[in-house]
Amino acid sequence: MFVQEFIAAVVPLYLVATALYLYRALKGPTIPDHVLGVDLLSYNLAVLFIVLGIFFKEPILIVTAIPLALWIYALDIYVAKYLERRVMGA
């Protein structure tokens, strides 16, 4: 089958999307914009991890995607907590 060639044709599109997300993550005027950019970058990276794991034919590489999804959610919650603590005065 042509799985490797198809993935080699699709991955450059993901790289273009990475560049677009990075532009917003570096530019974004307010802090929530930066955090949204990091969020999208990391979800893009999770897809790249799994798709390149199929490309290399090494199934053990896939375990890196689950901690990525969990810890980026933790980063969201930290920043939201930091912003709300300043307005509540604690």
């Binding site: 970058l41 990391s42 375990v63 890196t64 990525l68 920043v79």
Partner: peptide, 24 residues
């Protein structure tokens, strides 16, 4: 705070590099 977010972006790309060097 923005500097912390920039260092998080750097860590995301470094993890992709470590992945490509076959060290999960």
């Amino acid at each position: 705070v923005k500097a912390v977010i920039y260092s998080a972006i750097q860590s995301v790309f470094y993890s992709l590099l470590f992945y490509l060097f076959m060290s999960p």
